[in-house]
Amino acid sequence: MKVGVVGASGYVGGETLRLLVNHPDVEITTVTSRQHVGEYLHRVQPSLKGFTDLTFSELDYDKLTDKCDVVFTAVPHGTATEIVKALYDRGIKIIDLSADYRLHNQEAYDKWYGWTHPHPDYLPKSVFGVPELHREEIKKAQLVSCPGCMAVTSTLALAPLIKNDLIDTNHIIVDSKIGSSGAGSGSGTAHAMRAGVIRPYKPAKHRHTGEIEQELSEIAGSKIKVSMSPHAVDVVRGILCTNHTFLKKDMEQKELWKIYREAYGDEKFVRLIRDKKGLYKFPDPKFLVGSNFCDIGFDFDEDNNRLIALSASDNLMKGAAGSAIQNMNVMCGFDEMSGLRYTPLTPV
């Protein structure tokens, strides 16, 4: 199957290419980037040297329609809107890695992005790209919008708790920690000033909150609000969401294992990590970076009736490009693990 990647010069575009060049079922025919037209791909994504001798081309809708069955759009928020619409109108399958088609309606974009979507009528055509929650819809979708990295990591931990009505929905706190590659290649802070930080940014009203609330509200069938606070920490890849919740009734460990096994027991990319022994007791990006896993665990704080649901992922993999490939596999009927059988690169 032939694929194209629009906007392949950033971290997310680069990671998508890293996975696609090694994907058994696809061939990359087109790679576009405004700044690098004519340049070899490996000059902008040097780690792919020896994997491909593709060069960047200009964005040409006719060429894309002609040469690609599926197109990944990895351009910044706001610029993807027109590209996705143009491709959609031409009937191509699109996997969008931007935030432009994640939320379901204009009202949500007003609240979380203060942005008027030029084509709100296309929002209902987009499926939220988390196969663990929307596999059947993704199979039939023409447009899939990949989730924000913190959103998917947190939502996967909270979804089973909401589905089984276990927690007080007025006190859901998502305290997330995220690596520097989550901030986009253009906007990265200089290393000297990024190393050693534990930096809260947008402690309230961070945009990804909108996606988490959207997904949890759909599961609950009622409006769920979430209190999210992200922090930049001194790693390159990795997210850890500490989802602090309060239980409605006492629970046994066994019950919670059962609930999480029911939700994710058969999932290839979710591992349940809660181990009394060994090196890996609770989810931690250290043991999954480079792979498409979202590891989930939990702990009880009986004194405070608190359930701490923990989830970790690689912000460039399950948090972006890994999900994009996983969605493609589901959309195109490939084995869901195809091109994603990466073991974590530990230690790194």
Binding site: Q253, W257, L272, R274, D275, K276, K277, G278, K281
Partner: peptide, 9 residues
């Protein structure tokens, strides 16, 4: 005997 999932002995 140690449990493969939760590490209880």
């Amino acid at each position: 005997v140690s449990c493969p999932d939760c590490g209880a002995d």
